[in-house]
Design a protein around this nucleic acid. Structure first.
Lengths: 219, 219, 219, 219
DNA sequence: AATGAATGAGTGTTCATTCAT
DNA sequence: TATGAATGAACACTCATTCAT
């Protein structure tokens, strides 16, 4: 692995575990056993490292949220979308821990975030629209966007919400599954008689994963 | 007004307008025309000032979210609750701008926050329960808490959400009314035929306020 | 003496002896036995210290180069002007060691320097004009300014010239007297039969001072 | 062109346009599209590059300031000397921008500079002596050296003087012609009735060049 | 109650230079 | 010859906090 990649990955790991605020460039260098000068050889500054991490984030989002092009909605299809959501939240949890903090100190990054989020919102709205046209979703046409937006909001701030509204500070996969389940709950409220079974199976799928994850750490 | 009170109010004002991160204790002292030493005579440290602001916050929450003791739900009653929500979000918007940041650096504060939020959640759940019993809300008994929780989450992170998912960084009353309307939207989804008119009037009330506020600044 | 004054004087002393380039803010603080934080309590940054020194410089220039208001030119009068020149060059020799370096990194300082130098040039030109009108100086009217300018240039760069065109790097009073003598030489070239004796006495005065100074250090 | 020569020429160009202080060895390497390691293969350090540039400087000085061996002084002859002066000042203007800065950090370089300057001074003095013997210059024998020295000083510090005593920071050919004219002014003050016409033509020559250069950039 | 000078550990960053390949 | 990753000492500067008065 190249040093610059090592720096990106070590930074992501340290940010995720200790929080971006508490990790200085010297910490990252020390963690990798390289000199601060070397770190600055590969990256202009700390912002630059974060931007590189953000590029990974963008790539994940683009790859995961592909337009919906299927005839029939299936549990597998929806699971694909929610798994993407889960993976992104988990991999880049340091961002979602403190979105405001991270985006408020770098205007250019905010713009990139807005752009990629707009795309993601468009694609989600599109999927919801298709589901509605397929008779699988019961929602007014002019409320589709708002539903997608609310689901996004819950997803984006679930980590922050958990960290501030529960005693356990650490972000765990268990807690992320709870977030997914909450988003599904909002989603499922608009199920049709035709699709309700599908939604139930979707929910059960993540409930199982949630229980398994919780069991892993309580045992 | 006593110096310690002046410090609390000046800090709140400065935090709200410039952000807690950017305001140093020296800024606060300079703003009041007092010495930093004097500030530290009244407060142990910056955390201590924030804790004092937090006491105001607690008082507001306690006063605003009184248990529901009425026979008949009225628009005025619900408006009372939502006005409290609006006022608290506005007065202490620096907190809601970056809840994670502020609570993550002070464990004791987080505990106090959890406590007061638990109380608020209990009371909201209670109100929702009463509304259900009065036939004004259509929701499963075991989902009441979750509904209250979701409404709370949207309220608590609306400011952060707006700041990170829109180009306009400044927090305005207009943007807060939008948040209130979104919470009402989630709320109204569970209206019964008996209460739908009431919910509609509630929504219209805030839509009017939102429009008025928006007009004030666009003209 | 107040700390801020101590900082200014210590900085001036260190700059004069070691050169501004080689003296960091930490050096200054360490030299005074104070913390770097304290230094930054009194001065915004290194530039700020230099600007304070520059204020002293301006005061010296203003005080020393008073307009010429006398009927008869006397050796004492001219000595007054040249003594001012000598004192300023000596007190602020770190500046004259490397004028370009110091002024090129602070645009605002360059502007202040230009202003005070313009004033000094105006006053010198004025004096030369008066001398001419008194029949003590033989120079074309349109060359007065150029003569003053050339004298200024030699004065301002004498230190730099000596440091780069002689083996002895250290700036001494002896070397400054040489500079004064060189300026006087250019000046004296325009003496009239009436004033030649005065110019000679002026020159002899500084030749004596030069010799005395040189003797002090060679013995 | 060999890499080492490329480095020397690129460095000279970059130093002249951006200033030696602001150009790092990495800048030079990047400008040439070579690696910093390669640069250090050819040169021990930055100082070493400057010393190589200095060798070019020495060669120019030696070639330009040939001993005076002519019977009759002519405008062309003097123009030859002043053109050399102009060319050297222009080609190596980064040095003259900040002579003290560059020479003070490299003792060996200062010694070489002193040597080549001594030679140049000797030759200039020699020329002045010949001119005097030819009846073309009116100056005391014991003042010849001082006259040569003053002329040199004005030439060597004219760039620095302009940069610190005028608002326009950029060094232009126009500004260098001004410097030449100032040196000629000091020179011409010692013209004899026999040589005055020659001096006038010399001055006019550079006045024309100065005007042409100025016109080029104002139009 | 109040002053304001003083602290000092810490931050992100720079750049001439080295060295294994 | 050439690469380019790596070094590390140095720098200017910040800010919550302390303390003598």
């Amino acid at each position: 692995m190249k040093t610059s990649e090592k720096i990106v990955h070590a930074s992501l790991k340290l940010f995720n575990t200790k929080g971006e605020r508490r990790i200085t460039t010297n910490h990252i260098a020390a963690h990798l056993g390289i000199s601060p000068g070397n770190l600055y050889y590969h990256f202009k500054n700390k912002e630059d490292i974060i931007r590189s991490i953000f590029s990974l984030y963008e790539a994940h989002l683009h790859a995961g949220f592909q337009p919906y092009a299927h005839k029939h909605v299936s549990v597998e299809l929806l699971i694909g979308y929610f798994d993407t959501m889960f993976n992104i939240l988990w991999r880049f949890r340091f961002m979602y821990t403190n979105l405001t903090y991270i985006l408020s100190s770098d205007e250019a990054l905010l713009q990139r975030y807005l752009q990629v989020q707009q795309l993601a919102l468009d694609r989600s709205s599109n999927i919801l629209g298709q589901l509605k046209r397929d008779g699988l979703l019961d929602v007014d046409d002019d409320k589709i966007m708002l539903l997608a937006d609310t689901m996004r909001m819950v997803a984006c701030f679930w980590i922050g919400y958990k960290q501030t509204h529960s005693s356990s500070i650490a972000i765990t996969k268990t807690c992320l599954y709870e977030g997914i389940l909450r988003v599904i709950m909002i989603f499922k409220a608009h199920a049709t008689p035709i699709s309700i079974a599908t939604f139930n199976r979707l929910e059960e799928h993540y409930q199982t994963l949630h229980s398994l994850q919780a069991a892993k750490h309580s045992s």
